[in-house]
Write a protein that binds this DNA or RNA. Structure first.
Lengths: 240, 240
DNA sequence: CGAGTAATAAGTCAGAGTAAATAAAGCGAG
DNA sequence: CTCGCTTTATTTACTCTGACTTATTACTCG
């Protein structure tokens, strides 16, 4: 009774989730180019060793995220990139599963540079005690663990999330997946470039202080600096 | 042989799409509150007069958009709002299917006010001839049909889309669904308030000219004015 | 109060039949 | 004979049915 180790469909909560992950990463990473056709349900389901229902449900997920479109007789085709829900958390996860397209990283940073200073400004105007506490806690954890560790990176994301939540704007909160991905990737690249060019904590503290003080102008400015620095560091590490 | 007219599941491209629409609007509109449990697959599928597979595929779509979460034995529960992919085109469509929450409209406008001026700035730096042509064409259609007609509103959205595309940033393009929804809703409210407070075309022309001329500063400023005006008009119409 | 156990609802599977969209064949008009 | 339209045929996704499996919760018993 040998272990049948061939399960080439990736991991995921459930079977269909695993299939969705497998196909999703394959598409987002460019293995299956836009316009290309997936092999038929029966064939593909059998190839992945899952039932047709499980396979179909996985495809529905991809369809829901704008990655593919299927029509009778025509089959299931990969849609052009601009149709993808690029800000969907799962799509981003798939994008960053393999070595991600540098273009995507650049785009997300550009989005960050636009959104986060404005978010900091709003947060300064609307934050309450709980928001400030969440920021300070995240900051403490960041300082404690540093960005070299996993909990440290989680704390970093938590810090930026707390700011977005403080804006009281669900549409901005919905961007946290994209922002978070960019934030995470920054640290990843920095790590790879070995030398941490500078301590990021002071920048974060300036932002937190400004928001806590309710100084919208200062919060905007401080966040602008923070993102700019992160962008610089990442860019430097990317070119190497 | 009477027409069996009871098909209380809404319209959609396919059967599962119709069910997804039906459930999606019910959830987003608050009919099924967050935390609440959907009745079991078998029961619900029978109630909607569809097979279990079709019903399940619809639920997968909702799951993919972060609206619900299902676990064995526990059933399928509606997730809290902050887990929803609020920027997903379909979710937004569901949100605007019935009278939408004013809060959502406000949030989307806030997002617009943050993103669009910055996008106009980038567009001014990166646009090419094709982008300018797309903008001018949309503008001509807007002027021709006016915002009182459907093609006119389409042209309005097309104008803003063209700008986002000109940024060469897919992450920004992915926001077009949200921006477009806000844009559309503006005109809807304006219409309802009867009097069109002012002609929107001149504002649009100023933006287009600035982008065509490559003047980033002017484009930012002009777009800022445009969004501000649209926000004012919508707000005025909303309070009535 | 904790470990084991039963009940429940989602998850997976298999196979058959339906509906829709494209490609091919047929046919009539010019 | 060619062109354009209509009809047919085929391919593929879509829907349905019903059975079985697995995971999780809740209960019972020690």
């Amino acid at each position: 009774m040998e272990e049948q180790a061939r399960k080439p469909r990736g991991t995921g909560r459930r079977l269909r989730g695993a299939v969705a992950n497998y196909l999703g990463t394959a598409i987002v990473s460019g293995e299956i180019a836009p316009g290309e056709r997936l092999s038929g349900e029966v064939a593909n389901a059998e190839a992945l060793d899952v039932s047709r229902s499980a396979y179909r449900e996985a495809v529905q997920v991809l369809t829901a995220k704008g990655l593919v479109e299927s029509r009778p007789k025509a089959g299931t085709r990969v849609l052009p990139r601009h149709r993808w829900n690029l800000l969907d958390p799962e799509v981003l996860a798939w994008a960053f599963a393999k070595e991600p397209d540098l273009e995507i990283v650049r785009n997300l940073f550009e989005l960050r540079a636009i959104v986060e200073p404005a978010a900091a400004r709003l947060a300064a105007e609307r934050r309450d005690k709980a928001d400030v506490k969440a920021m300070r806690d995240a900051l403490a954890a960041m300082r404690r663990f540093t960005l070299a560790t996993d909990p440290g990176r989680v704390a970093d994301r938590e810090f930026h999330d707390a700011i977005l939540r403080a804006t009281r704007n669900d549409a901005l909160v919905a961007l946290s997946a994209g922002i978070g991905a960019a934030v995470n990737w920054t640290t990843h690249y920095k790590q790879r470039a070995r030398a941490l060019p500078r301590d990021p904590v002071p920048d974060h503290i300036r932002v937190a202080d400004a928001i806590a003080a309710g100084d919208a102008e200062a919060a905007d400015k401080a966040m602008r600096v923070l993102v700019e620095m992160a962008f610089d560091d990442t860019r430097a590490a990317m070119v190497r």
